[in-house]
Computed example of a mutant assay.
Amino acid sequence: MKLKERGAGASDARAPRPRPVRKKRVGQALAPLLWLGPAIVLIAVVVLWPVVEMVRTSLLKISSSGVTLGSAGTDNYSDLFAEEDLVPTVVRTLIWVVAVVIVTQVLSLALGQLLNARFPGQRVVRWAVIVPWAASVLMTALIWKWMLDNYSGVVNRLLLDLGLIDKPVNWLANPDQAMIWMMWVAIFVSLPFTSFVILAGLKTIPDDVYEAARVDGAGTFRTYFQITLPLLRPSILIGSIINVINVFNSFPIIWAMTGGGPGHATETTTTFMYKLAFSSQNVGESAAMAVVNFILILVMVLLYMRASRWREEVR
C-alpha cells in the first residue's frame, strides 16, 4: 500500500501543471492593439469626434456670438430644408462634382500615359506637372481670377489679339461662364494628383503582359482597353474617390473667384454652409448643412464603389 501511495504521489508530482491558456489567448488577441492603438486613437480624434460634434451642433440652438442657448431639436433641419436656394445649390454641386471628376479622370489617363513614356526631359515634365498641386489652391484661384479680369486679364487680351472676341468679356459675371471657368480651375488643381495615381498604377503593370498581348497580335487600342484599363481599375477607383471628396468640399476656388455669385448662381454646398454660419449668423443651420453635405459625399462614394464592383462582376 505504501509503495502504491508513493508511486501515486510521484506520478502526481510529475504530472504537468495546467498552463494559463486563457491569459495567453487574451494576450495574443490584445497584442495587435499595440500597433493599431495609435491609429485608432488618431481616427477617433481626427474623424469620429468632429463628426459627433457636427451632428450635436446641428441639434443645438446657438447664438451669433457662439453661446449655446439649448436644444433646438430638428428645427435647424426644418429651417434648412425650407431654404429656397437649397435644392438648386445641391443640384449645382452634384453637377460640379461629376463634371470635374470625370474630366479630370479622362485627362489624367492621357497625362499618366505621357508621364510613363520615355522621352528627354521626362523628370522636368514630371516636376512641372506637380506645381499646380503643390501651390496654394487659394492663390491659384486668385491668379485665374486676375487672368479672367475683363480689363487687364490675360485671357481677354489673348482672345482679342487672336480676333476671337470683339470686346472684353466679364467671364465671372455670367453664371454659366463662371461655372465653366471654375470647373477648369478645379480640374487644373486636381489633375496632378490623379495623373500621378494613374502613373503609379501603370508602373505596377508587368511588361510580360504587354509582350504576351503583342505575341497574340493585339493592337494598341485593344491592348489599352482590354489590358491597361482593367489593370488600372484600383488606381482609377482611388483617384476618383479622393477627387469626389476634395471637389465636393472645395471652398477656396468658388469663394475666391465668385463668392457664390452673382447672387447664388454659382453657389455650392460649402459656400452655402459658410454664408449660413457667417452671413446669416445661424451656426446651427450651418451645422445641419454640414451633416447633409457629409451624407451626400458618403452616398456618392458608396454609389461609385457599388458601380465599380458591378462592372467587375459583369466583366
Rank of each mutant, 00 (worst) to 15 (best):
residue 168 P to I: 12
residue 215 V to Q: 02
residue 11 S to P: 00
residue 29 A to F: 08
residue 190 S to T: 11
residue 228 T to V: 13
residue 219 G to T: 12
residue 296 L to H: 01
residue 176 D to M: 12
residue 192 P to C: 11
residue 297 I to H: 03
residue 100 V to S: 00
residue 167 K to I: 05
residue 19 R to N: 06
residue 263 G to T: 05
residue 44 A to I: 04
residue 125 V to E: 03
residue 258 T to N: 07
residue 255 W to G: 03
residue 112 G to S: 03
residue 174 N to H: 11
residue 107 L to P: 00
residue 138 L to W: 10
residue 118 R to L: 03
residue 198 I to C: 05
residue 56 R to Y: 04
residue 132 P to L: 09
residue 120 P to G: 05
residue 48 L to K: 06
residue 295 I to F: 13
residue 252 P to E: 13
residue 159 L to A: 08
residue 49 W to N: 08
residue 314 V to M: 13
residue 296 L to W: 01
residue 271 T to H: 01
residue 221 F to P: 01
residue 150 N to Y: 14
residue 258 T to V: 07
residue 176 D to R: 12
residue 248 F to N: 04
residue 174 N to Q: 10
residue 229 L to Q: 07
residue 86 L to K: 01
residue 283 V to L: 15
residue 43 I to W: 06
residue 50 P to T: 09
residue 65 S to Y: 03
residue 147 M to D: 02
residue 36 L to K: 03
residue 179 M to I: 06
residue 120 P to S: 06
residue 77 Y to S: 05
residue 55 V to I: 15
residue 300 M to V: 14
residue 200 A to D: 04
residue 160 L to Q: 13
residue 282 N to L: 03
residue 288 A to C: 07
residue 202 L to V: 10
residue 275 K to S: 12
residue 20 P to G: 12
residue 138 L to T: 15
residue 182 M to I: 09
residue 167 K to T: 14
residue 38 P to N: 07
residue 192 P to Q: 12
residue 98 V to P: 01
residue 49 W to M: 12
residue 202 L to G: 07
residue 117 A to R: 13
residue 235 S to C: 07
residue 136 S to E: 13
residue 64 S to M: 08
residue 193 F to H: 10
residue 201 G to W: 02
residue 153 G to H: 02
residue 84 E to M: 10
residue 312 E to I: 09
residue 119 F to R: 07
residue 166 D to Q: 14
residue 296 L to N: 00
residue 38 P to T: 04
residue 32 P to D: 06
residue 214 R to A: 12
residue 104 T to M: 04
residue 231 L to V: 11
residue 245 I to V: 15
residue 111 L to I: 09
residue 29 A to Y: 06
residue 141 A to F: 04
residue 44 A to Q: 09
residue 278 F to R: 05
residue 124 V to A: 15
residue 108 S to R: 01
residue 213 A to D: 04
residue 168 P to H: 10
residue 64 S to H: 03
residue 229 L to D: 11
residue 88 P to R: 11
residue 183 M to P: 00
residue 98 V to G: 07
residue 26 V to E: 10
residue 54 M to F: 04
residue 111 L to T: 02
residue 216 D to K: 05
residue 102 I to G: 02
residue 206 P to C: 07
residue 314 V to K: 14
residue 1 M to I: 12
residue 74 T to H: 05
residue 100 V to K: 00
residue 248 F to Y: 15
residue 123 R to M: 12
residue 267 E to L: 09
residue 25 R to S: 07
residue 270 T to P: 00
residue 197 V to W: 00
residue 44 A to M: 12
residue 182 M to K: 07
residue 76 N to H: 10
residue 140 T to G: 15
residue 214 R to V: 03
residue 92 R to N: 14
residue 300 M to P: 04
residue 174 N to T: 08
residue 290 A to D: 01
residue 297 I to W: 02
residue 227 I to K: 04
residue 58 S to D: 03
residue 295 I to Q: 02
residue 211 E to S: 12
